[in-house]
């Protein structure tokens, strides 16, 4: 215990303080949820009060206005393409770059690592132009491809460090048994990378799911809008005037991450701490 000598009174003060901070943290989420279940009239009568009856019409409205299932599907598609590419390509490159000792391998690794300095805002203008000329702008798969490019360097960095903990003797034994390079990697090494694969998957999934600016620039067609873009567009359309539908859509948009968080909390917190210290 750090604050050991406070005794019982000190303990009450600490819990009280933490309780206030927790109320503050949950307050906007609670208010959003509460008022998303009210009619416009109920909201005018009292924003803080419990609704006189639960109004689910806002949700039906929001579902339609942000094309919930389609937007959710698009978001999942982008994240799945990005994640598959990042994990496959980064584990391959991270493994081989970590095992090879030559100057070429060091140079390639350095190029990947150095780019982690580049803020997204510094490349977004030219990236938009390149994507347009390569015809990847506007589609969900194109967006997934771009995420692969943006995400591989940090993932390679994580894999590169982790591979060092796997004994080289394992590679040598497999080679003596006549195992080729690719089979060695996919059959022997890749399963051993599971802990770092989990960390990489969680960090990248959260990043892609919550990323806003890149899809805003890339998704020019409303059919391929992700959850955040649909919500943002709805807000742009109704602004401050139709809070019932907007709050319902905000609740719908954050529902998947909240569920994901409550289910996998242990792994997520571990992955975050891991990624932050290495980054």
């Amino acid at each position: 215990m750090i604050l050991g000598k406070g005794g019982r009174a000190g303990s009450v003060v600490i819990v009280l303080f933490l309780g206030i901070a927790a109320v503050f943290t949950l307050f906007p989420i609670y208010m959003g949820l509460l008022n998303s279940l009210k009619t416009e009239g109920d909201m005018l009568n009292g924003i803080l009060s419990i609704p006189s009856r639960l109004e689910f019409g806002n949700y039906a409205d929001a579902f339609r206005k942000i094309h919930y299932w389609r937007s959710l599907g698009n978001t999942a598609e982008v994240a799945a393409i990005g994640l598959a590419g990042i994990i496959l390509f980064a584990s391959m490159a991270g493994y081989k770059l970590s095992r090879s000792t030559g100057r070429l391998s060091n140079a390639i690794f350095l190029v990947f690592v150095l780019s982690m300095l580049i803020p997204f805002h510094s490349i977004m203008i030219t990236l938009t132009r390149i994507s347009r000329s390569l015809d990847v702008q506007g589609s969900t798969w194109g967006l997934g491809f771009i995420y692969i490019g943006l995400g591989v360097s940090f993932a390679i960095f994580l894999y590169h460090g982790f591979v060092k903990s796997i004994p080289r003797e394992l590679d040598e034994a497999a080679v003596i048994d006549g195992c080729g390079d690719f089979r060695l990697f996919f059959v022997v090494i890749f399963p051993l990378l599971l802990p770092v694969t989990a960390t990489t998957a969680i960090l990248n999934l959260l990043w892609m799911w919550n990323d806003f600016l890149l899809p805003l620039l890339m998704l020019t067609n409303s059919k391929s809008y992700t959850l955040l873009i649909s919500t943002n567009m709805l807000f742009g359309e109704y602004g401050n005037n139709d809070w019932s539908a907007i709050l319902a859509s905000l609740v719908l948009a954050m529902l998947p991450v909240i569920v994901f968080y409550l289910l996998l909390q242990k792994y997520i917190l571990h992955g975050i701490a891991e990624g932050a210290v290495k980054g």
Binding site: M92, A93, L97, S115, I118, S122, L127, D181
Partner: peptide, 21 residues
Amino acid sequence: ILLAFAFPALLFYAVFVLAPA
């Protein structure tokens, strides 16, 4: 073999990060 393992990552990275930079 090194290049074969690093190539897919390098390709996406070169097109969507290095070229824009």
